[in-house]
Simulated assay, not measured.
Amino acid sequence: MTIAPGDTIPDVQLKLASADGAKDVSTKELFASGRSVLFGVPGAFTPTCSNNHLPGFVENRDAIGARGVERVVVVAVNDHHVMAAWARFAGAEGKIEFLADGNGEFVRALGLDVDLAKAGMGVRSQRFSMIIEDGVVKELNSGDAPGQAEISGAARILEQL
């Protein structure tokens, strides 16, 4: 079952990538208080994720923050080494937090996993975005066509904030 507005974020232990290395985090604790934006991508360094989805959030980070959002987090079914490298490559360190869901446990718990085995990618995250307040989903956006990041993009989040 897919998570929906009004639902609480599930508690999964993941790795938060940073320049100082990986930090173990509980998703329940990470999103427990305040207002956050979480967006999910099929994979770090993939074309749409790197050229469209992530850059929109990096470019609009200040505008999102000005609307009361304390943290912007991206999650992908990649390991923390890849997520840290992607943060550096994208110039997003210190702007966006990079959450590594290496085994896909979190996106599976959200009901936002997708089987991309036919493309040689295995189980990954659907492309999505959400607004979370005090651990509860307030808005959920998913359903982008392959190669698109409009429904789940930063512009949509700004409209909802």
Rank of each mutant, 00 (worst) to 15 (best):
Thr8Lys: 14
Glu29Cys: 08
Gly68Ser: 03
Val136Ala: 11
Gln148Thr: 12
Leu158Gln: 00
Ala63Asp: 09
Gly102Tyr: 10
Arg35Gly: 04
Asp134Glu: 08
Met1Tyr: 11
His53Val: 02
Phe31Val: 03
Arg156Ala: 05
Gly6Asp: 09
Lys95Arg: 14
Gly104Val: 05
Gly34Tyr: 05
Arg35Thr: 13
Arg108Trp: 07
Val107Pro: 00
Gly120Ala: 06
Asp20Gln: 13
Ile132Cys: 04
Ser142Met: 12
Phe39Asn: 00
Thr2Arg: 14
Asn78Thr: 06
Ala63Glu: 09
Arg156Lys: 12
Cys49Val: 08
Val114Phe: 13
Lys95Glu: 13
Val114Gln: 14
Gly40Leu: 02
Ala149Thr: 04
Glu29Met: 09
His80Glu: 14
Phe106Ala: 06
Asn141Trp: 12
Gln126Cys: 09
Phe89Arg: 15
Ile157Phe: 01
His53Glu: 03
Gly91Asp: 08
Pro42Phe: 04
Ile157Ala: 00
Leu112Thr: 04
Ile96Phe: 03
Thr27Lys: 02
Val77Ser: 00
Asp20Thr: 09
Asp62Leu: 10
Ala155Pro: 02
Asn51Ala: 13
Val37Gln: 01
His81Gly: 13
Phe98Asn: 05
Met121Asp: 11
Ala100Pro: 11
Val25Trp: 01
Arg108Cys: 07
Ser36Gly: 05
Asp11Ile: 05
Val137Ser: 09
Pro146Val: 10
Ala17Tyr: 03
Ala4Arg: 15
Ala92Glu: 07
Asn51Gln: 14
Val73Gln: 01
Glu139Met: 12
Asp7Pro: 08
Val72Glu: 01
Ser18Thr: 10
Ala155Trp: 00
Phe57Arg: 00
Glu70Cys: 11
Gly135Trp: 02
Arg67Trp: 10
Glu29Phe: 05
Ala19Lys: 15
Ala76Lys: 02
Ala109Met: 10
Ala119Val: 11
Pro5Cys: 07
Leu16Lys: 09
Phe98Cys: 10
Glu59Phe: 00
Phe39Gln: 01
Glu97Leu: 15
Phe89Leu: 12
Gln13Pro: 06
Ala32Ser: 12
Val72His: 02
Val74Phe: 00
Ala66Pro: 03
Glu133Trp: 06
Val58Tyr: 02
Gln13Val: 14
Ala100Glu: 04
